[in-house]
């Protein structure tokens, strides 16, 4: 039980860093004061409560959601390289957000959330249905191909809209990159019910994933209904990844790397992997966000970029390790 505690400590440190570090560094004591004895007259207090607390909360929630979604999707597809992105989640959310901006004149992040969510859900449902037609159900290669093809179609439509409407492009390019900046409490509140439901649901699926990880035949012999199991896991992935993408934009690689780290710490039992993923995801995302604020001062590198640039080497190492292909 020491390991989860250690990760919990990391999480606390990451959160404090996220509250203290930024364009303007704020001493930890001041951060503490702002949280316990808020003084609206102090600019530092306002920065902490108005900007950094929602941003950190968003990071924690999105990180937890993507970590869990990645673990679920890897468990269900038994593919160690699966990532919510292969379900077309990002492309679907992106297209819907573009349409939201261009057609419905949505300009605020609070408005993007709903479009992003709907897009992610629609795209992943389509990918899953087409990918699971035929013999063998939803195999990793079928899903990956279908996801890539759907991403192609959606991003074409997306660039058609963007090219004809530079104003939309101007807004959209800042959503596209995936960031935690500028998330105010209202958006976090909007996404919260979905994320909470998704997180609770995901945590209950450990036993199901344990069964599935031994193969469909064995799972069935344990009395599991594998179809229902997959649909439940798929639903949880859509809710988690959809809400996370809606909240922060497309963040790549987090869902891929977190399950591997969690497995390294927790061993093979998904009932332990899932809670750990929920802790490791936020640590990584919040730290990536903090790093992004530090490296390009006074500007910022978005968390989505930082995770991608750090995540790609992780992927390469994973692929180069032996016998990764099967799970």
């Amino acid at each position: 039980m020491r390991k989860p505690l250690g990760i919990g400590a990391c999480l606390a440190v990451a959160a404090v860093l996220s509250l203290a570090v930024g364009t303007k560094d704020i001493p930890v004591t001041t951060v503490f004061d702002a949280l316990t004895a808020f003084d609206p007259g102090q600019v530092d207090h306002l920065i902490v409560t108005e900007r950094r607390v929602p941003r950190t909360l968003a990071g924690l929630l999105v990180g937890a959601a993507l970590g869990l979604a990645g673990t679920l999707i890897q468990g269900v597809t038994r593919n160690p390289l699966a990532d919510p992105g292969i379900f077309g989640v990002n492309a679907g959310a992106a297209l819907f957000v573009v349409v939201g901006i261009a057609v419905f004149g949505v300009t605020s992040l609070t408005g993007y959330v709903w479009f992003g969510f709907a897009g992610a859900a629609t795209a992943s449902a389509v990918v899953y249905v087409i990918g699971s037609l035929g013999r063998g159900g939803a195999s990793p290669l079928k899903l990956a191909l279908t996801g890539a093809a759907l991403t192609a179609a959606l991003s074409s439509l997306q660039s058609a809209v963007l090219l004809t409407d530079p104003a939309t492009h101007d807004r959209f390019r800042f959503w596209q990159v995936g960031t935690l900046a500028g998330r105010d409490p209202e958006i976090v509140e909007q996404a919260l019910p979905f994320l909470a439901a998704g997180i609770v649901g995901a945590l209950l699926l450990g036993k199901v994933l344990n069964g599935l990880s031994l193969g469909d035949d064995v799972a069935r012999s344990f009395g599991q209904n594998t179809t229902t199991d997959r649909v439940c896991c798929g639903l949880a992935v859509v809710v988690l990844a959809g809400a996370a993408t809606a909240l922060a934009g497309p963040i790549t690689f987090l869902g891929l790397a977190v399950p591997h780290l969690a497995r390294m710490v927790a061993g093979p039992d998904y009932r332990r992997i899932l809670p750990l993923s929920m802790l490791i995801g936020p640590v990584l995302l919040v730290l990536a966000d903090v790093l992004g604020r530090v490296v390009a001062r006074p500007g910022e590198v978005q968390a989505g970029v930082v995770t991608a640039l750090l995540g790609a080497p992780v992927l390469v190492v994973l692929v180069r390790r032996r016998k990764l292909a099967r799970l």
């Binding site: 160690p80 497995r263 061993g267 093979p268 390790r321 032996r322 016998k323 990764l324 099967r326 799970l327």
Partner: peptide, 15 residues
């Protein structure tokens, strides 16, 4: 002799 199980049993990174 194959599969993820061996990776889980890795000792100092070598399955």
């Amino acid at each position: 002799r194959d599969g993820e199980l061996l990776d889980r049993l890795a000792l100092k990174g070598s399955p």
